[in-house]
């Protein structure tokens, strides 16, 4: 565990907590893509199946369980409790266009052709693009609530911090995982535009709105 990895995990944890609290406190999931949330639940479910096969640390297991539980809780809040506030007219990204190619790629490019390893690879690839329905929704409505921007910033920062963690681990431990690194790069690049808007607008106290 190095400082980049820890900062990345904290950022990831904060993102998820901010989203749940936002929905709970405002009694609304307006502006949040349920499709991205479904993809994230799929990501955590397929990646953390190793909870049953490998024990790494109490920290590792606790975080995994938290991510899985929080992702399903978010889906429950969006599709059941606060369903009336869900903005489905703007949440129209076709997730099969992500799931199908990602499944194919996971079958073709993986470390090991075993069920758990293929599911892990699938989750890494899927995570890299899972935010697209949310970014699509923001671009469609042309704006995002400030709290949603904070959520997106924390969520995007997490994988970018992991990139620094992987650079560190490569030099310190000789460890590298090309699948995670390339997917992490893709994931971080997808947020670049958003990061720019966040820094130039939200941090200066303005609402995040896109140029027409």
């Amino acid at each position: 565990m190095n400082v980049f990895r820890l900062a990345g995990d904290i950022s990831h944890l904060l993102a998820i907590i901010v989203l749940v609290i936002k929905i709970w406190k405002t009694r609304s999931c307006a502006g949040i893509s349920g499709r991205s949330q479904i993809l994230f639940a799929l990501v955590y479910t397929t990646r953390y199946l190793d909870l049953f096969t490998n024990f790494i640390s109490a920290y590792n297991s606790a975080m995994k369980i938290f991510f899985i539980v929080a992702s399903y809780a978010t889906i429950f809040l969006m599709y059941s409790k606060f369903r009336a506030t869900y903005d489905h007219n703007h949440d129209t990204f076709r997730i099969e266009f992500l799931i199908v190619p990602v499944s194919g790629l996971a079958l073709l490019v993986n470390h090991d052709f075993t069920p758990l390893e293929i599911l892990w690879t699938f989750s890494i690839y899927l995570e890299s693009v899972a935010i697209l329905p949310q970014l699509f929704m923001v671009s469609k409505t042309g704006e995002a609530e400030t709290i949603t921007s904070h959520y997106l910033f924390a969520l995007g920062s997490y994988r970018t911090l992991y990139l620094f963690n992987w650079i560190y681990r490569y030099y310190a431990e000789g460890f590298y995982d090309l699948i995670a690194i390339i997917a992490g790069l893709v994931q971080s690049v997808l947020y670049c535009d958003f990061f720019y808007l966040y820094i130039t607008k939200v941090l200066k106290g303005k609402r995040l709105s896109l140029p027409a």
């Binding site: 990895r5 190793d50 790494i56 590792n60 470390h111 090991d112 390893e117 992991y162 995982d177 995670a180």
Partner: peptide, 10 residues
């Protein structure tokens, strides 16, 4: 690649 089966990151 060095890593297979055991993934110690989240």
């Amino acid at each position: 690649d060095t890593n297979s089966e055991i993934h110690d990151e989240l």
